[in-house]
Design a protein around this nucleic acid. Sequence first.
DNA 1: AATTATTTTTAGACAAATCTAAATAAATTA
DNA 2: TAATTTATTTAGATTTGTCTAAAAATAATT
Lengths: 219, 219
Amino acid sequence: MNLTVAEENYIKAIFHLQQAEGNVSTNQLAASLHTKPASVTDMLKKLTNKNLLNYKPYQGVRLSKEGKKQALMIVRRHRLWEFFLVDKLQFGWDEVHEVAEELEHVSSKKLVEKLDSFLGHPKFDPHGDPIPDVHGNMVAIRQFNLIDIQPGTLVEVCSVGSQSAELLELLRHKNIGISTEMLIMKKFDFDHSVEIKIKNSQHINISQQLAQALFVKLV
Amino acid sequence: MNLTVAEENYIKAIFHLQQAEGNVSTNQLAASLHTKPASVTDMLKKLTNKNLLNYKPYQGVRLSKEGKKQALMIVRRHRLWEFFLVDKLQFGWDEVHEVAEELEHVSSKKLVEKLDSFLGHPKFDPHGDPIPDVHGNMVAIRQFNLIDIQPGTLVEVCSVGSQSAELLELLRHKNIGISTEMLIMKKFDFDHSVEIKIKNSQHINISQQLAQALFVKLV
DNA sequence: AATTATTTTTAGACAAATCTAAATAAATTA
DNA sequence: TAATTTATTTAGATTTGTCTAAAAATAATT
């Protein structure tokens, strides 16, 4: 099953839209892909012939089993590259999307698996979205960057943004690890640092850089 | 100047062919790109309109100044990605070409420059071909991988394949550095190690891994 | 120099992905 | 329910990059 760039973009857009809504409409897709409804109809027919979609005219569309499998692999590539760009190339997490849109279409199986190993099999991308594994499995819950959490919220650390020795050293020093629970106390505008309180411990301050490297879930 | 993948592939092919020969013929290009002469003629007209080529019907073609500039940036991306694949993702140097063919078309300026920094501004790709810098300048001489040199040859170290601490430690220990001259004595089939003699020093043995990381020129 | 062979270009067609404009189906509202 | 609005599909055209077959230019050979 070899897909063109255009086909992959349709599959990915349908995947994301059908998470929220049920069946995805032609107009929704056209808006999402910055194209016209007539073009969408054409492509839906084509992808239906390839058994990637369940599509009935006027009834909207959903991914077939095979379509979902393809979508998960595209999302996997996209999020792995986003992680690479932030963790290795020092991109800001807000400037990686467009570049990852291009890299995701390089589909060498070997490249993707070696990249995954090189990155240390990350579970979440820099936005906190889960990265599907090689079989398409991924964590269901949405994780948040600590920097985005409002004061007063109780959260639990789920994963860290990189595996660098420097980060791990700092985490050990602050006694923060996976599944550490913490209450967000205050955010300081001056340096974007965050004051937190770890269960049965004192208040500590976390720098912007560290907060951006911590992914948490609400408890 | 935004080029399509097809256009970039033509520019790159012309660049490589005009190194060897003078003007590049339609048939040569068709063979090199696995396409038909008629298709080549069409594309040559198109690229000529974009001022990337100097082309006269029946007279063959050469890159214009702007075309050469574009070609050098494509080659730069290709070789940087090849270096990345071998040095970071542990690909064999003989299996990177096809993947790099795809990655080279991702043309984000920022991506390429950050990748270059991340890799330590390498001067040669894993095949010993020079990597053009951001201005299109590159070393003229062809370098060779030490592993490919025949016994009896006198060579001089020009660059090393990576900047890892582990490699640098080993080189220091063996007293090998840039511009070290060495005579290749013997190659062992069992482990692909190489016996060399450094000027004014004793014979030493170099492992396959180390030999692959050393780039030399003939003296 | 005339003929033959090779190379290159032109002419016309095709698939992929898109578009506009018109037609049709579905949903909404009076 | 009928009329109207909105959503979707069809029909036909366009662009990009390719192709085959035929024509034209160049090169090689007798």
